[in-house]
Design a protein around this nucleic acid. Structure first.
Length: 805
DNA sequence: GGCTAGCCCCAA
DNA sequence: TGGGGCTAGCCG
């Protein structure tokens, strides 16, 4: 029997299957979708079994070393889906498959040196012999830790046949196990054992009597804690054969110590009823349909999700719920856990690799029927999928910005077609792509225009910050916002202050000569980090001390500019010293769980003001928040991105939605330097439809999505000439082949012209219908392959680009 | 991606 | 002549 295997090497020349002989004893167990260990050249690699065959396609065959899974990690469907993803996004097959399984299952490789049989220590040079005195295998990493590294010597010894190299392969993370202790024998025997123990063995006797009483295996750690003793007592009991220890596999449970009150389905409003109807009938008829729910913030989309899932579970099927960067919204997770209890697995970025793996295994073993997770959860290995929900479908985090560059929405729709099940897209501000599809009838459109319980949307006022400056207010708070903040404090309510950091981080500027601190490796200004008093590059990690004098002109008047959250926090402390502020940004939420802790503290009223970046815009629901302030609404508008207006509109709508969600009515103050921009004005009027119409006109005029598809080719190389050359050749190659109506733009310099000492150019392809495009680009990549291998040219392809930076 | 066979080059 | 450095080609 032959197994067709894809090996764990992302390279174009091995982007195909290799045939391996299946050892007789594995013939019954090996299945497509399993991971295997296979010899590849001199090495040992992980691979995926794509299929089985009787006849090999080559003569020379090697045997599979071992199976790495008792059951396939990729289902038949996922194997197919991987091929679809790799075609759609032009990535290697292996890259697509790796994206579908938890990182814990990715192999790690290392090499070890071992003495060849028949060679003794005396045969080796002293320097090498020293290493082998106490162990017979030396991992290569150990050799690299020493300077100068003896690696060269070891390699020479390998050539002399004194040493050999052993290739190791292991999973990244193992299953977590706990040790249980239980007493051997019957009750009578245990009592006998106790009697036979020596008088001094007090602890041992205590252990036996404890185990006797419990009657079942006890967790070793607990046992030691309760009886205040150490492992040695158990060890000596074990030696006498009085107790046994067993290892049991357990799940890490990130939600263990949490008390979630179960909830019951709520009665639906008329509008909610209307929205859930198409979902239920698609479920009933086992029919694929994509349903876009456009519901204002607080209109009860989640309840529709919950009741749809309930129906799916009752049918014995499974559901996937995607939420953007879910760790940010523990409230959302809790709502699903509250309704479906232990039938829910959670997959999000704040979990450790081991925790993610355990949650994933619950799905694989069919122990849960709902998964709530971020982007990659769209690949959850359910086999009887009944529903996929994408909440906040407009979120850019659903697009993966590295290979495979897939969009979770497209994968979801594809899986929905396969399983003949509905897909729900929900948002208060649908992406133009989705809304346009709904308008065309490709998706079913459902509108929820009212908030549940008829609560009013908060009133939004836009403040012209230039006007403030003219009036002599140089602070970052307008008079309006400041007054309202004080009122909120006096009413003992809460406020959320939102700072859109993107494009506004603090850079340093010399007031004399205009020098701006830039990264020596990237064409981007350095960001000042106050805590470490350092300048850092956010792209390559370069850092340098903050200069006290300008490196150009020696002027001492070098300062940092821009408004970071730290600076806002300081200003708040100065202006409103009585206010208790919680700041949330990358600096304060770095540690695991700190995000949730800060939000909990705010929810419990331990602070008056929550100050943060993007991460506080989504899904938060605090009853006492009555004021939302957006400190600078327009920072994003000026980025070189045709979606800038859309993103601004979405963000402002989301942020405004945080105010007045319960009994208290809410207010929003939006500060801006760009007055009269339609995205800010229409967001303040809560008018999505008008925004949609305006923005669509612009997209049509400029031939941007959703009127045109957009593919982006990015070229980078350490030498400017090489990038220019490759990108020009590519652009002209494509121009000669594409159909009329397709537009090739560029090559142009990328918005960030250089990152990590590599120059960057890009070519943009805009098209309505270009069926052969993937093939053309594949050929292009094929053509440049030698240069990519040999002299460091990099070409990245983003079919359907969301981000053009 | 990583290994090595095969090539060239250069020092002795 | 032999060893080092480099590259093309291959891995089943």
């Amino acid at each position: 029997m032959i197994a067709k295997v894809i090996v764990d090497v992302p390279a174009s020349n091995v982007n195909r299957t290799f045939d391996y002989l299946v050892p007789q004893e594995l013939e019954d167990t090996v299945k497509p979708g399993m991971r295997v260990s296979v010899p590849f050249g001199p090495r040992k690699l992980q691979g995926f079994v794509m299929g089985l065959a009787d006849e090999p396609s080559v003569k020379k065959l090697k045997k599979i070393n071992e199976l790495l899974d008792p059951v396939p990690v990729l289902t038949e469907e996922l194997l197919q889906l991987g091929q679809w993803v790799s075609q759609k996004t032009l990535c290697f097959l292996i890259t697509a498959y790796q994206a579908m399984i938890p990182a814990a299952l990715k192999a790690t490789y290392n090499k070890e040196f071992k003495m060849v049989d028949g060679i003794s220590l005396e045969d080796l040079p002293v320097e090498a012999a020293e290493w082998f005195r106490h162990r017979d295998r030396i991992p290569m990493e150990d050799l690299l830790k020493v300077t100068p590294t003896p690696l060269g010597l070891f390699q020479r010894l390998v050539q002399k046949n004194h040493l050999e190299v052993i290739y190791q392969m292991a999973d990244k993370v193992t299953k977590k196990k706990i040790k249980l202790v239980h007493a051997s024998g019957t009750k009578e025997e245990i009592l006998e054992h106790m009697a036979s123990l020596s008088k001094q063995a007090v602890k041992q006797r205590e252990i036996l009597s404890f185990l006797l009483e419990s009657g079942e295996p006890v967790v070793q750690k607990d046992l030691l804690e309760i009886l205040e003793t150490t492992r040695s007592a158990i060890q000596s009991l074990e030696q006498k054969g009085y107790v046994q220890t067993i290892e049991k596999e357990i799940y890490r449970d990130p939600y263990a110590n949490r008390d979630i009150k179960p909830t019951e389905p709520l009665p639906l409003t008329m509008q909610q009823e209307q929205c859930i109807r198409p979902v239920l009938s698609a479920l009933e008829e086992q029919r694929h349909e994509t349903i876009l729910i456009h519901g204002v913030t607080g209109s009860g989309k989640t309840e529709i999700y919950l009741q749809s899932i309930d129906k799916v579970i009752k049918k014995g099927q499974e559901a996937i719920v995607l939420v953007p960067e879910i760790s940010l919204t523990p409230q959302m997770v809790n709502r699903f856990k509250a309704r479906f209890g232990s039938r829910v697995a959670v997959l999000h970025s704040a979990l450790s690799a081991g925790e993610k793996y355990d949650e994933w295994r619950k799905i694989q073993r069919k122990e849960v029927s709902v998964v709530v997770g971020a982007r990659s959860a769209v690949f959850a290995p359910f086999e009887n999928l009944g529903l996929i929900i994408i909440d906040e479908e407009h979120e850019s985090s659903y697009k993966q910005e590295e290979n495979p560059r897939y969009h979770a929405r497209e994968v979801a729709v594809h899986r929905g077609e396969y399983h003949r099940c509905p897909v729900i897209l929900g948002s208060a501000t649908p992406s133009l792509e989705s809304y346009a599809r709904a308008q065309k009838g490709v998706y079913t459109l459902c509108e929820l225009s009212d908030r549940v319980n008829q609560r009013e949307l908060p009133s939004v006022s836009v403040v012209d910050m230039r006007e403030e400056l003219r009036a002599g207010n140089r602070s970052m708070f307008s008079r309006d916002l400041f007054t309202k903040l004080k009122e909120v404090l006096s009413r003992k309510e809460q406020a959320v202050l939102f700072l859109n950091r993107r494009g506004y981080s603090s850079f340093i500027l010399c007031r004399d000569c205009g020098y701006v601190g830039e990264c020596p490796h990237c064409d981007i200004s350095l960001t000042y980090h106050k805590r470490q008093h350092l300048l850092k590059c956010h792209y390559c990690g370069h850092q340098e001390p903050m200069p006290s004098r300008c490196p150009m002109c020696e002027s001492p008047y070098i300062r940092f500019f821009g408004t970071g959250t730290q600076k806002v926090e300081e200003e708040l402390a100065r202006l409103l010293p009585e206010a208790r502020v919680i700041r949330m940004d990358v600096d304060t939420t770095g540690r695991k769980g700190s995000h949730e802790r800060l939000l909990n503290e705010f929810g419990q009223g331990k602070a008056d003001i929550l100050l943060g970046t993007q991460m506080i815009a989504k899904g938060l629901d605090f009853p006492k928040v009555t004021l939302v302030g957006v400190l600078a609404a327009d920072t994003m508008l000026h980025l070189p991105d045709f979606r800038a207006s859309e993103k601004t509109f979405q963000l402002l709508t989301q942020v405004s939605g945080r105010a007045g969600r319960h009994e208290l009515t809410g207010e929003v103050v939006v500060q801006s330097y760009t007055i009269g921009h339609y995205s800010i004005d229409l967001a303040s009027q809560h008018d999505y439809h008008a925004f949609y119409d305006d923005e669509m006109k612009i997209r049509r005029d400029h031939k941007y999505p959703p009127y045109y598809y957009l593919t982006l080719l990015s070229f980078s190389h350490p030498e400017l000439m090489k990038v220019v050359d490759a990108s020009e050749k590519s652009a002209s190659y494509l121009s000669q082949r594409v159909s009329r109506g397709t537009i090739i733009l560029g090559p142009v310099v990328s918005p960030i012209a250089r990152i990590k000492d590599r120059y960057r150019y890009q070519v943009m392809i805009k098209y309505k219908n270009e069926p052969g495009l993937s093939e053309m680009i594949s050929e292009l990549l094929q053509h440049f392959q030698p240069e990519m291998d040999a002299n460091g040219l990099q070409i990245s392809v983003d079919m359907n680009a969301q981000n053009i930076m």
